[in-house]
């Protein structure tokens, strides 16, 4: 293991232990690591956007002759008008463009790509059932989707049939949230195992190289 590799491991180990120190209580070493993390993450996005958006999508095509790209470039710069009290309204034009285009994309993709597609899959699963297990599964899905939607329907008081179906919806939702919770816990525990493995194998393992 080279000196640089040992230094890298020790930096990673210091930052890992500094962040874990919060489990004991809030302290200066944790705050130091936390602020380094916040700064590096912000800097990471600056580098990413500069390269993938400003250089690759704006600057290089602009130089190649796509003069029309001056318009989004200017709209992007207008965003910074937000920092001026007098001219902050200018940034609304750029913001409106982002909101308008995003809404246009969303309106179609959400209805066509999600609502109709999910409803179609739900209904067709019943027709294409193969065997009793498959039919039962399709039935569970159809009842689950309808009951969940009714639980989230707040325009009418949940009483009578609506209330009963909403109650079934709660049971479905609780089981689903329980499954999600279980998966989330296992995901986080897996990350924890990764960090502990790093500390034991790499960091403590590097002690022998130093001594």
């Amino acid at each position: 293991m080279s000196g640089i590799e040992i230094l890298q491991i020790w930096i990673m180990a210091f930052l890992t232990l500094a962040l874990f120190s919060f489990l004991y209580k809030d302290n200066a070493v944790y705050k130091l690591a936390e602020h380094i993390f916040a700064g590096l993450s912000a800097g990471y996005y600056v580098g990413l956007i500069w390269d993938t958006v400003i250089v690759q999508q704006l600057w290089e095509p602009l130089i190649a002759g796509k003069a029309l790209l001056i318009v989004p470039g200017l709209m992007g710069l207008l965003m910074f008008g937000r920092f001026s009290q007098q001219y902050s309204w200018i940034s609304r034009v750029s913001l409106a463009f982002v909101m308008g285009t995003t809404s246009g994309i969303f309106l179609v993709t959400q209805l066509h790509g999600l609502v109709l597609a999910q409803m179609r899959s739900t209904m067709r699963s019943m027709a294409g059932s193969d065997g009793i297990t498959d039919l039962l599964l399709s039935l569970v899905i159809v009842v689950g989707v309808i009951a969940t939607l009714i639980y989230f329907y707040f325009s009418k008081e949940h009483k009578g049939i609506l209330g009963g179906t909403a109650k079934v919806g709660v049971w479905f939702i609780m089981i689903s949230f329980g499954a999600h919770f279980g998966y989330t816990v296992m995901g986080r525990v897996s990350l924890l195992i990764g960090r502990v493995q790093f500390l034991i194998q790499d960091w403590i393992g590097s002690f022998g190289q130093i001594i």
Binding site: M75, G76, S94, V98, T101
Partner: peptide, 18 residues
């Protein structure tokens, strides 16, 4: 317009960092 959205959206993220 999708390319333009990507460019203006990139500037909004930079605005956040600034």
């Amino acid at each position: 317009l999708r390319v333009w959205l990507s460019i203006v959206g990139g500037f909004t993220l930079l605005l956040g960092v600034v």
